[in-house]
């Protein structure tokens, strides 16, 4: 069993009219089976409404499955007594950086999680220092979050989760509200945490460029897992991705189009250097 497991996970939103009668049922997540091993970097891709955010909220026990089971660190999320342990095991970073920072000073915000789980004062300081250094925000520890850029705020939010020493971090579209620079900053930080601190990462996103470094990509559409594999495997199926209303990275698309016109280029090219090398061979 991995760090995160779901079996036949189903989640239904029930729409009601004004009298409270059931109008319809939306199946946001439909029989999803995923298994994430410790230390993996998983990216979950999907168009708007594909159910990826709903799936993410299950991994932190914010939502409970309608059917099926979710295990986090071997604990069933449906059992209430596991709730706080699960939230400590799988930390969650949300989309809007402003709406998840609680304190008026960076270091106090990072200390918020450890305070909640009853860590002694001296250890809180130690954890705050370590986490802020891990995301490269240590020199901003005494700043007000309002003065930081979006990318910096999001890194503070990640540090806030890191300070709780989770085994796994779920990031629900952490870059959706950031500019390109902020996006790069955050993705670089996530990769570093994965490689250096060996934290399991589950990154929910719809930006293709962010998933090329993942160990495994899961593509969702209409609540189902429709594709799964390494970034190279997934991105070599350009036609299929287009069907799910997802774009592939520009160079992958260029390579694909060239190949369609008859140039002997291999499938699933992910980066510009790779592409250059391949072209040079011709």
């Amino acid at each position: 069993m991995g760090i995160v497991d779901t079996r036949k996970l189903v989640f239904e939103y029930i729409r009601r009219d004004e009298e409270g009668n059931v109008e319809g049922i939306n199946r946001a997540v439909d029989e999803v089976d995923i298994c994430v091993e410790k230390g993996e970097f998983i990216a979950v891709l999907g168009h708007n409404g594909s159910g990826k955010s709903t799936l993410a909220k299950h991994l932190n026990a914010i939502l409970m499955p309608t059917e099926g089971t979710v295990w986090v660190g071997g604990m069933d999320t449906a059992e209430e007594e596991n709730l706080w342990n699960i939230r400590q095991t799988a930390g969650m970073v949300f989309q809007n950086p402003d709406n998840q920072i609680i304190a008026n000073v960076v270091e106090e915000d990072v200390g918020f999680g450890p305070e909640n789980i009853g860590v002694p004062t001296e250890e809180i300081w130690q954890r705050v220092e370590e986490s802020l250094k891990a995301v490269g925000m240590y020199e901003y520890r005494a700043h007000s979050p309002n003065r930081l850029s979006g990318g910096q705020k999001q890194r503070v939010a990640i540090a806030g989760i890191m300070a709780m020493k989770p085994e796994c971090i779920v990031l629900d579209e952490p870059t959706a509200m950031l500019d390109p620079n902020g996006r790069k900053e955050v993705i670089r930080t996530i990769r570093q945490l994965n490689q250096q601190e060996n934290v399991t990462i589950i990154l929910i996103t719809h930006y293709m460029e962010e998933v090329i470094h993942a160990d495994r990509v899961i593509v969702m559409d209409g609540g189902r897992v429709v594709m799964q594999g390494t970034p190279r495997e997934v991105f070599s199926q350009v036609e299929l991705l287009k069907k799910y209303r997802l774009d592939v990275p520009q160079v992958t698309l260029l390579a694909y189009e060239l190949k369609k016109k008859g140039l002997p280029i291999r499938d699933g090219i992910l980066s510009i250097p790779e592409f250059v090398e391949e072209i040079a061979k011709l």
Partner: peptide, 26 residues
Amino acid sequence: RRANDLAMAMEARCYRGGEGRTKMKP
């Protein structure tokens, strides 16, 4: 909307009221 988001973020960081909380800056 912000309040809703913030409440979710606080819960995700194990906030459950003042009981059993320690202080970073006592």
